[in-house]
Design a protein around this nucleic acid. Structure first.
Length: 165
DNA sequence: TCAGTTATTCATG
DNA sequence: CATGAATAACTGA
């Protein structure tokens, strides 16, 4: 499990890789020391390649565009249900939104909207798995693990209008 | 209409 | 058993 930093116009993200793929992506901390930086270890050749892909994808998303390619994601940390949700999330394109209940419906559990919300919050790879494109049924914001400001920014960049925008 | 409240639902810890 | 990034129905202004 290695960690690398990705510099973007919005700050420095921390990406965590396992042998299987990208396992986590953390938002920039306002004043987090970068001492823990390169996290010591050198990335494997594979991981270095994934890092590049991740970086390109991340920049694309931050610009409100659809990434051309994503690195392999290592989602073994999630439960079965969560992985289903995350897979559905990846099908949402920039500029589109879904509601928690719509997602629940797609998962054949029309009444599990609330559970879907939990799964979104448990998403270890925000942005690449666009949990920010999920609004509440009344087209309001709902919540966001990285802080609602991020959600607002991202949606705005994608040209999405929500209730109160 | 509309803000607030209530009953229902479901995966997770 | 309690809780949450939910929702629809209901209630009284």
């Amino acid at each position: 499990m290695n960690t690398a930093h990705i510099h973007t116009p919005d700050g420095v993200f921390a990406a965590t890789f396992t042998d299987h793929g990208l396992a986590g992506l953390r938002f920039p901390r306002p004043s987090q020391s970068l001492t823990k930086a390169a996290s010591g270890n050198a990335l494997t050749t594979k991981q270095a390649a994934w890092l590049k892909t991740t970086e390109r994808a991340l920049l694309a998303i931050l610009a409100g565009r659809n990434p051309r390619a994503l690195p392999p994601l290592d989602l073994k940390s999630g439960t079965g249900f969560q992985q289903e949700v995350w897979r559905e999330l990846q099908a949402i394109h920039p500029g589109e939104t879904r509601s928690y209940s719509e997602l629940a419906k797609q998962l054949k559990r029309p009444l599990a909207a609330r559970a879907v919300g939990s799964a979104c919050g448990a998403n270890p790879v925000p942005l690449l798995i666009p949990c920010h494109r999920v609004l509440a049924a009344n087209r309001r914001l709902g919540g966001f693990s990285g802080g609602l400001d991020w959600k607002r920014q991202l949606l705005k960049r994608e040209g999405v209008a929500w209730d109160g925008a």
